[in-house]
Amino acid sequence: MALFREQADVSVRPAVPGDEVAITDVQLAAWRATHADVVGAEVLAGLDPSALHERWRAAIVRPPTPEHRVLTACEGATVVGFAAVAPLPAAPGPPPAGPGGELVALEVAPGSRRTGHASRLLAAVVDGLRQDGGEHLVAWVLDGDTARGQFLRSAGLGPDGAVRQLATGMVVDRSAPDGSPAVERTVSEHRWSAAI
């Protein structure tokens, strides 16, 4: 008797209206699993899923340009990851020469990681950029996200020296005496890039 191993049907497709709920769920779960120490669990707990649903719906239904895209990774019909890409913006540091895109988001649900979804999403992003005449891809890596850095390095990207600071919101310094004002928490992101 032969043993057969069931394997889910896996795919990448453009996001469609209705995917915004699953995309938000994946984003929040991934951020909580990966970024709570750096960004702050209280900041992540304060994110409004309804507002994120609306932003993702707008990105899917009314992208600012044809080059703005949202893709989903699926196991069967279930969305387990997503990527969003935009045209290269003016950014700090030396810009890549020539046209290209910025990987605005790439997240996979914690329970579906290390199964090839991120690689398939990144390959689809690069294929789309090449079809549009893109020559470069950039992505941002949050301090402390070694797994993302390792993934991007394995895909051929590397740090290019650009750094940006992001404000995550006001947080209370729990180590300070009572009555201390909230302070703004900032995090650093480093730009990674590659010719495609």
Rank of each mutant, 00 (worst) to 15 (best):
A195D: 08
V16D: 13
E135Y: 09
V138I: 15
V125R: 00
H68I: 02
A29K: 01
A176Q: 11
A45Q: 14
E75V: 09
G93P: 03
G100F: 04
E6D: 15
E75Y: 13
A2N: 12
G144H: 06
Q27V: 10
G116K: 00
G101L: 06
P17A: 15
V108Q: 04
V172C: 10
G169V: 11
A86E: 11
L106P: 12
T34Q: 01
R153T: 15
A59N: 13
V171S: 09
R62I: 08
R120M: 13
G40K: 14
A195P: 10
S112Y: 07
R32G: 11
P92A: 06
A29M: 01
H53W: 09
F151H: 08
P92F: 00
L166P: 01
G100E: 01
I23Y: 05
F151L: 09
L137V: 14
E102S: 07
P66G: 07
A59R: 14
T72H: 06
H35P: 04
G144V: 12
T168A: 13
A97H: 14
A91S: 11
A41M: 10
A139Y: 06
E20F: 09
G76A: 11
T168G: 12
A36S: 15
V61M: 05
V61K: 08
V126Y: 00
D160W: 10
P94M: 14
D160R: 02
S50V: 13
H35N: 10
V26S: 05
A15V: 11
M1N: 11
E184A: 14
H190L: 09
V171F: 12
V16N: 12
G111L: 02
T186R: 12
D160A: 12
L166D: 02
A124V: 04
R120A: 15
L106D: 09
A51V: 08
S193L: 01
I23K: 12
G111I: 06
T115V: 11
D127C: 07
A22D: 11
D132M: 06
W56F: 15
